[in-house]
């Protein structure tokens, strides 16, 4: 006599997903940009620094959709060692969007200072370039009656992979709650040129530099680990989902070492009315 066997239905594991609905996300972020710029601040135009990378390209695409390409000013700010590929990739974005564009070489400004500090190492030089680019973006915004738009993503914000009070300084940022891999997905949906989406991300401060080389981990792994970490998974449970303990430790160390970069400066509290401690008002009040 054969024993009847019942069909077994396997349950999916309970895992936080990094998948996004790109149409929904794009619509939400466009509404965010219109509300923040036009309705709240009465500003019609945006200024975006185009690096040739995917974050600034996606930001530009979203701004063009939200505000119209005629209200998007893209600024390329090469330094003399920047790769030619960065400029030409940024040009692909400009051509695709039909937005306004300008190239402002920052070599003179950067070198004007660095002549006093010729021994500055690459990290310092990178920070000087990033801060110089923000001087340009804020000044151009002032001139053009526009608002500078930030391009930092959640992964680099969490890993502290940015220059404090430079990349993070624009008052409005549409991508800051999207992991890098989610930005890539959104880029493909928006039609960002494939050469930009597919190339290895790089801060382009030195030849052959890549983000993943600097960080010591791929974005795919970093994002998966970060998403678990932010939900409260400890290192053991995180590693059990397919990562080495070293990878988990690397990510945790970067996050825990950079909380200060995600805050305003530390201010000594002396009263019952200390700003942002007792005196609490929302940013849009």
């Amino acid at each position: 006599m054969s024993v009847a066997t019942l069909p077994i239905i396997d349950a999916a594991p309970s895992v936080p997903s990094l998948a996004i609905d790109c149409a929904l996300t794009a619509e939400w972020l466009e509404a965010f940009l219109r509300d923040e710029l036009i309705e709240r601040r009465g500003v019609k135009s945006a200024v975006v620094g185009l690096s040739g990378g995917v974050d600034s390209a996606v930001t530009a695409f979203l701004c063009a959709r939200a505000l119209g390409p005629e209200h998007l000013w893209t600024i390329r700010m090469p330094y003399r060692t920047s790769s030619a590929g960065s400029l030409s990739d940024a040009q692909l974005v400009i051509d695709a969007l039909g937005c306004r564009a300008r190239t402002i070489d920052i070599s003179g400004a950067v070198d004007g200072y660095l002549q006093h500090e010729p021994e500055a190492d690459p990290r310092r030089r990178g920070n000087i370039m990033a801060r110089t680019r923000m001087i340009v973006l804020f000044d151009q915004s002032s001139k053009l009656d526009a608002l500078p738009i930030g391009t930092g993503n959640k992964t680099e914000r969490l890993l502290g992979y940015f220059t404090w009070h430079a990349d993070d300084s624009p008052p409005v940022n549409p991508l800051g709650d999207l992991f890098k891999t989610q930005v890539w997905a959104l880029a493909r949906y928006l039609g960002v040129p494939p050469s930009i989406v597919d190339k290895a991300p790089s801060a382009d401060l030195e030849a052959d530099q890549t983000d993943e080389g600097d960080l010591g981990i791929t974005y795919a792994k970093a994002d998966a680990i970060l998403s678990l970490m932010l939900l409260g998974y400890d290192d053991v449970r995180t590693a059990a989902r397919g990562f080495t303990p070293e990878e988990v430790r690397l990510v945790r160390r970067r996050v825990d070492g950079t909380h200060w970069k995600r805050h305003l400066p530390t201010t000594a509290m002396l009263s019952n009315t200390a700003i942002n401690e007792f005196y609490l008002r929302p940013v849009d009040y």
Partner: peptide
């Protein structure tokens, strides 16, 4: 405040 962009049914 809206959150959750995974988008089952095309909604937050």
């Amino acid at each position: 405040p809206g959150r959750g962009i995974e988008g089952r049914d095309g909604e937050l």
